[in-house]
Design a protein around this nucleic acid. Structure first.
Length: 280
DNA sequence: AACCAGGGGACTC
DNA sequence: GAGTCCCATGGT
Protein backbone atom coordinates (compact mmCIF):
# COMPACT_ATOMS: atom_id res chain seq x y z
CA UNK A 1 0.00 0.00 0.00
CA UNK A 2 1.17 3.49 -0.88
CA UNK A 3 -0.07 6.75 0.52
CA UNK A 4 -0.03 10.26 -0.88
CA UNK A 5 -0.97 13.05 1.48
CA UNK A 6 -2.53 15.91 -0.44
CA UNK A 7 -1.78 19.44 0.62
CA UNK A 8 -4.82 21.54 1.57
CA UNK A 9 -3.90 24.10 -1.10
CA UNK A 10 -4.15 21.45 -3.85
CA UNK A 11 -7.66 19.98 -3.82
CA UNK A 12 -8.33 16.66 -5.51
CA UNK A 13 -11.56 14.67 -5.69
CA UNK A 14 -10.84 11.10 -6.79
CA UNK A 15 -14.48 10.10 -7.18
CA UNK A 16 -15.35 13.14 -9.27
CA UNK A 17 -12.28 12.81 -11.48
CA UNK A 18 -12.90 9.12 -12.23
CA UNK A 19 -16.68 9.28 -12.66
CA UNK A 20 -17.10 12.35 -14.88
CA UNK A 21 -16.65 10.42 -18.13
CA UNK A 22 -13.08 11.28 -19.12
CA UNK A 23 -11.76 7.73 -18.47
CA UNK A 24 -13.49 4.46 -19.30
CA UNK A 25 -11.45 1.75 -17.58
CA UNK A 26 -12.23 2.36 -13.92
CA UNK A 27 -14.87 0.70 -11.77
CA UNK A 28 -16.05 1.65 -8.32
CA UNK A 29 -16.84 -0.74 -5.48
CA UNK A 30 -17.84 1.15 -2.38
CA UNK A 31 -15.22 3.84 -1.87
CA UNK A 32 -12.52 1.91 -3.71
CA UNK A 33 -11.74 2.26 -7.40
CA UNK A 34 -10.00 -0.31 -9.57
CA UNK A 35 -8.60 0.63 -12.94
CA UNK A 36 -6.34 -0.74 -15.64
CA UNK A 37 -3.77 1.83 -16.76
CA UNK A 38 -1.24 0.61 -19.27
CA UNK A 39 -0.10 -2.76 -17.90
CA UNK A 40 -0.97 -1.91 -14.30
CA UNK A 41 -4.03 -2.70 -12.22
CA UNK A 42 -4.37 0.20 -9.80
CA UNK A 43 -6.54 0.09 -6.67
CA UNK A 44 -7.16 3.41 -5.02
CA UNK A 45 -9.36 5.15 -2.50
CA UNK A 46 -9.48 8.59 -0.98
CA UNK A 47 -9.80 9.30 2.72
CA UNK A 48 -9.93 13.06 3.14
CA UNK A 49 -6.57 14.42 2.13
CA UNK A 50 -5.02 10.96 1.79
CA UNK A 51 -4.87 8.75 -1.29
CA UNK A 52 -4.35 5.09 -0.43
CA UNK A 53 -3.43 2.89 -3.36
CA UNK A 54 -1.63 -0.19 -4.65
CA UNK A 55 -0.43 -1.33 -8.06
CA UNK A 56 1.51 1.82 -8.89
CA UNK A 57 4.11 3.99 -7.23
CA UNK A 58 3.40 7.50 -5.94
CA UNK A 59 5.17 9.25 -8.81
CA UNK A 60 2.95 7.43 -11.30
CA UNK A 61 -0.22 8.31 -9.38
CA UNK A 62 0.86 11.96 -9.08
CA UNK A 63 1.46 12.22 -12.80
CA UNK A 64 -1.63 10.25 -13.85
CA UNK A 65 -4.03 12.35 -11.79
CA UNK A 66 -2.26 15.63 -12.61
CA UNK A 67 -1.64 16.17 -8.88
CA UNK A 68 1.44 18.32 -9.41
CA UNK A 69 -0.51 20.86 -11.43
CA UNK A 70 -1.44 23.99 -9.48
CA UNK A 71 -5.22 23.58 -9.64
CA UNK A 72 -6.15 26.88 -7.93
CA UNK A 73 -4.09 28.76 -10.52
CA UNK A 74 -5.74 26.85 -13.38
CA UNK A 75 -9.21 27.44 -11.95
CA UNK A 76 -8.40 31.10 -11.35
CA UNK A 77 -7.52 31.31 -15.03
CA UNK A 78 -10.89 29.93 -16.23
CA UNK A 79 -13.04 31.56 -13.52
CA UNK A 80 -14.30 34.34 -15.75
CA UNK A 81 -18.11 34.37 -15.35
CA UNK A 82 -20.76 33.51 -12.77
CA UNK A 83 -21.76 30.15 -14.29
CA UNK A 84 -18.15 29.00 -14.42
CA UNK A 85 -17.56 30.31 -10.91
CA UNK A 86 -20.49 28.30 -9.56
CA UNK A 87 -19.46 25.19 -11.51
CA UNK A 88 -15.94 25.39 -10.08
CA UNK A 89 -17.33 25.65 -6.54
CA UNK A 90 -19.63 22.66 -7.06
CA UNK A 91 -16.91 20.46 -8.58
CA UNK A 92 -13.94 21.26 -6.34
CA UNK A 93 -11.03 18.93 -6.94
CA UNK A 94 -11.90 17.67 -10.42
CA UNK A 95 -8.65 17.17 -12.31
CA UNK A 96 -8.02 16.15 -15.90
CA UNK A 97 -6.41 12.72 -15.95
CA UNK A 98 -3.27 12.21 -18.05
CA UNK A 99 -4.21 9.20 -20.14
CA UNK A 100 -1.83 7.04 -22.18
CA UNK A 101 -1.99 8.61 -25.67
CA UNK A 102 -2.76 5.53 -27.77
CA UNK A 103 -5.37 4.22 -25.35
CA UNK A 104 -6.97 7.65 -25.34
CA UNK A 105 -7.03 7.86 -29.14
CA UNK A 106 -8.54 4.40 -29.63
CA UNK A 107 -11.03 4.94 -26.79
CA UNK A 108 -12.36 8.18 -28.20
CA UNK A 109 -12.70 6.65 -31.67
CA UNK A 110 -15.00 4.16 -29.93
CA UNK A 111 -16.79 6.97 -28.11
CA UNK A 112 -18.38 8.65 -31.13
CA UNK A 113 -22.11 9.19 -30.70
CA UNK A 114 -22.38 6.76 -27.81
CA UNK A 115 -23.22 7.09 -24.14
CA UNK A 116 -20.63 6.51 -21.45
CA UNK A 117 -21.82 3.05 -20.26
CA UNK A 118 -21.79 1.89 -23.89
CA UNK A 119 -18.26 3.20 -24.41
CA UNK A 120 -17.04 1.38 -21.29
CA UNK A 121 -18.61 -1.85 -22.51
CA UNK A 122 -16.88 -1.68 -25.90
CA UNK A 123 -13.49 -0.86 -24.46
CA UNK A 124 -13.83 -3.68 -21.96
CA UNK A 125 -14.68 -6.14 -24.75
CA UNK A 126 -11.78 -4.94 -26.92
CA UNK A 127 -9.37 -5.34 -24.00
CA UNK A 128 -10.62 -8.84 -23.13
CA UNK A 129 -10.26 -9.95 -26.73
CA UNK A 130 -7.03 -8.22 -27.78
CA UNK A 131 -5.29 -7.09 -24.59
CA UNK A 132 -2.89 -9.01 -22.34
CA UNK A 133 -4.08 -10.55 -19.08
CA UNK A 134 -2.99 -8.77 -15.92
CA UNK A 135 -3.57 -10.35 -12.52
CA UNK A 136 -4.44 -8.56 -9.31
CA UNK A 137 -5.76 -9.90 -6.01
CA UNK A 138 -6.86 -13.14 -7.67
CA UNK A 139 -8.77 -11.33 -10.41
CA UNK A 140 -7.89 -11.22 -14.10
CA UNK A 141 -7.92 -7.93 -15.94
CA UNK A 142 -6.88 -7.10 -19.48
CA UNK A 143 -4.60 -4.30 -20.60
CA UNK A 144 -5.72 -2.04 -23.42
CA UNK A 145 -4.82 -3.55 -26.82
CA UNK A 146 -1.65 -2.29 -28.44
CA UNK A 147 -1.88 -0.77 -31.93
CA UNK A 148 -0.12 -3.90 -33.23
CA UNK A 149 -2.61 -6.32 -31.71
CA UNK A 150 -5.54 -4.40 -33.20
CA UNK A 151 -3.83 -3.91 -36.56
CA UNK A 152 -3.02 -7.60 -36.93
CA UNK A 153 -6.46 -8.98 -36.14
CA UNK A 154 -9.42 -9.45 -38.42
CA UNK A 155 -11.78 -6.48 -38.79
CA UNK A 156 -14.71 -8.81 -38.12
CA UNK A 157 -13.16 -9.69 -34.74
CA UNK A 158 -13.06 -6.02 -33.84
CA UNK A 159 -16.66 -5.72 -34.94
CA UNK A 160 -17.64 -8.46 -32.50
CA UNK A 161 -16.80 -6.02 -29.68
CA UNK A 162 -19.96 -3.98 -30.35
CA UNK A 163 -18.04 -1.14 -31.95
CA UNK A 164 -20.25 -1.15 -35.06
CA UNK A 165 -19.05 0.97 -37.96
CA UNK A 166 -16.10 2.14 -35.85
CA UNK A 167 -14.40 -1.23 -36.47
CA UNK A 168 -12.86 -0.20 -39.79
CA UNK A 169 -11.71 3.15 -38.32
CA UNK A 170 -10.00 1.32 -35.46
CA UNK A 171 -8.36 -1.15 -37.83
CA UNK A 172 -7.03 1.54 -40.18
CA UNK A 173 -5.82 3.86 -37.44
CA UNK A 174 -4.18 0.97 -35.55
CA UNK A 175 -2.26 0.03 -38.69
CA UNK A 176 -0.94 3.56 -39.15
CA UNK A 177 0.12 3.96 -35.50
CA UNK A 178 1.62 0.45 -35.39
CA UNK A 179 3.75 1.24 -38.44
CA UNK A 180 5.04 4.47 -36.86
CA UNK A 181 6.70 3.75 -33.49
CA UNK A 182 7.66 7.41 -33.23
CA UNK A 183 4.03 8.48 -33.64
CA UNK A 184 3.47 9.69 -30.07
CA UNK A 185 6.78 11.54 -29.70
CA UNK A 186 6.31 13.23 -33.06
CA UNK A 187 2.87 14.51 -32.09
CA UNK A 188 4.07 15.64 -28.68
CA UNK A 189 6.70 17.84 -30.31
CA UNK A 190 4.15 19.62 -32.51
CA UNK A 191 2.07 22.70 -31.75
CA UNK A 192 -1.62 22.27 -30.87
CA UNK A 193 -2.65 23.18 -34.42
CA UNK A 194 -0.15 20.89 -36.13
CA UNK A 195 -0.78 17.97 -33.79
CA UNK A 196 -4.51 18.42 -34.42
CA UNK A 197 -3.98 18.34 -38.17
CA UNK A 198 -2.03 15.08 -37.83
CA UNK A 199 -4.78 13.51 -35.72
CA UNK A 200 -7.50 14.62 -38.15
CA UNK A 201 -5.75 12.65 -40.90
CA UNK A 202 -6.54 9.41 -39.03
CA UNK A 203 -9.71 7.45 -39.81
CA UNK A 204 -12.45 7.92 -37.24
CA UNK A 205 -10.87 11.07 -35.87
CA UNK A 206 -12.89 14.21 -36.46
CA UNK A 207 -12.61 17.56 -34.71
CA UNK A 208 -14.22 16.49 -31.47
CA UNK A 209 -12.24 13.27 -31.09
CA UNK A 210 -9.01 15.11 -32.01
CA UNK A 211 -9.64 17.69 -29.29
CA UNK A 212 -10.38 14.97 -26.70
CA UNK A 213 -7.14 13.16 -27.58
CA UNK A 214 -5.15 16.40 -27.42
CA UNK A 215 -6.67 17.28 -24.05
CA UNK A 216 -6.70 13.90 -22.30
CA UNK A 217 -3.81 12.14 -24.06
CA UNK A 218 -1.42 14.95 -24.96
CA UNK A 219 -2.07 17.48 -22.19
CA UNK A 220 -2.95 20.32 -24.58
CA UNK A 221 -5.13 22.26 -22.20
CA UNK A 222 -6.22 24.81 -24.79
CA UNK A 223 -8.21 22.06 -26.55
CA UNK A 224 -11.96 22.59 -26.05
CA UNK A 225 -13.85 19.48 -27.22
CA UNK A 226 -17.44 20.23 -28.20
CA UNK A 227 -19.85 17.33 -27.79
CA UNK A 228 -23.63 17.63 -27.80
CA UNK A 229 -23.70 18.67 -24.13
CA UNK A 230 -21.02 21.34 -24.43
CA UNK A 231 -22.68 22.61 -27.60
CA UNK A 232 -25.96 22.91 -25.69
CA UNK A 233 -24.29 24.76 -22.82
CA UNK A 234 -22.35 27.10 -25.12
CA UNK A 235 -25.44 27.92 -27.17
CA UNK A 236 -27.85 28.37 -24.28
CA UNK A 237 -25.57 29.90 -21.65
CA UNK A 238 -22.87 31.64 -23.65
CA UNK A 239 -24.94 33.05 -26.50
CA UNK A 240 -23.31 30.93 -29.17
CA UNK A 241 -26.72 30.55 -30.72
CA UNK A 242 -27.12 32.56 -33.90
CA UNK A 243 -23.79 33.61 -35.29
CA UNK A 244 -21.88 30.55 -34.07
CA UNK A 245 -22.98 27.39 -35.74
CA UNK A 246 -20.10 25.15 -36.65
CA UNK A 247 -17.64 23.26 -34.46
CA UNK A 248 -14.66 25.56 -34.97
CA UNK A 249 -16.69 28.62 -33.98
CA UNK A 250 -18.04 27.10 -30.77
CA UNK A 251 -14.64 25.61 -29.80
CA UNK A 252 -13.01 28.93 -30.69
CA UNK A 253 -15.43 30.78 -28.41
CA UNK A 254 -14.52 28.37 -25.61
CA UNK A 255 -10.82 29.08 -26.02
CA UNK A 256 -11.51 32.81 -26.28
CA UNK A 257 -13.66 32.86 -23.13
CA UNK A 258 -11.52 30.61 -20.92
CA UNK A 259 -7.97 30.98 -22.22
CA UNK A 260 -5.05 28.54 -22.23
CA UNK A 261 -6.84 26.16 -19.82
CA UNK A 262 -10.10 26.10 -21.78
CA UNK A 263 -9.94 22.31 -21.65
CA UNK A 264 -10.31 22.42 -17.87
CA UNK A 265 -13.33 24.72 -18.29
CA UNK A 266 -14.81 22.24 -20.75
CA UNK A 267 -14.35 19.36 -18.32
CA UNK A 268 -15.94 21.25 -15.43
CA UNK A 269 -18.92 22.19 -17.61
CA UNK A 270 -19.24 18.62 -18.93
CA UNK A 271 -19.04 17.17 -15.44
CA UNK A 272 -21.77 19.54 -14.28
CA UNK A 273 -23.95 19.20 -17.42
CA UNK A 274 -26.93 17.64 -15.68
CA UNK A 275 -27.21 20.62 -13.34
CA UNK A 276 -26.42 23.30 -15.94
CA UNK A 277 -28.49 22.27 -18.98
CA UNK A 278 -31.95 22.17 -17.32
CA UNK A 279 -31.30 25.63 -15.87
CA UNK A 280 -30.39 27.44 -19.06
C1' DA B 1 -25.20 21.77 -48.04
C1' DA B 2 -28.06 18.39 -46.41
C1' DC B 3 -28.75 14.00 -45.64
C1' DC B 4 -27.74 9.13 -43.97
C1' DA B 5 -25.54 4.68 -42.19
C1' DG B 6 -24.26 2.35 -38.18
C1' DG B 7 -25.11 -0.04 -33.36
C1' DG B 8 -26.21 -0.65 -28.56
C1' DG B 9 -27.09 0.72 -23.96
C1' DA B 10 -29.70 3.75 -20.84
C1' DC B 11 -33.42 6.42 -19.94
C1' DT B 12 -38.37 8.07 -20.44
C1' DC B 13 -43.02 7.38 -21.15
C1' DG C 1 -42.12 -1.98 -25.71
C1' DA C 2 -41.58 1.98 -28.53
C1' DG C 3 -39.12 6.20 -28.84
C1' DT C 4 -35.19 9.02 -28.00
C1' DC C 5 -30.66 10.12 -27.06
C1' DC C 6 -25.67 9.62 -26.60
C1' DC C 7 -18.15 13.06 -25.26
C1' DA C 8 -19.58 12.21 -34.22
C1' DT C 9 -17.45 10.60 -38.44
C1' DG C 10 -17.35 9.64 -43.18
C1' DG C 11 -19.49 9.14 -47.32
C1' DT C 12 -22.79 10.59 -50.82
Amino acid sequence: MNIITLSPEQPFDLHLSLSCGQVFRWAREGDRWTGVVGEKVVRIRQDGNRLIFSGADPSFVREYFHLDADLPTILGEIDRDTLMHETILKNQGLRIIRQPAWECLASYICATYANIPGIKKRISLLSEKFGRPVYSEGETFYSFPTPESLADCLPCDIRSCSVGYRASFLAETSRIVADRPEWEDTLRALSYRDARRELLALKGVGKKVADCVLLFGFQRYEAFPVDVWIERIMKRCYGADRELKNYEQVAGLGRELFGPYAGYAQEYLFCDRNRIVPRC
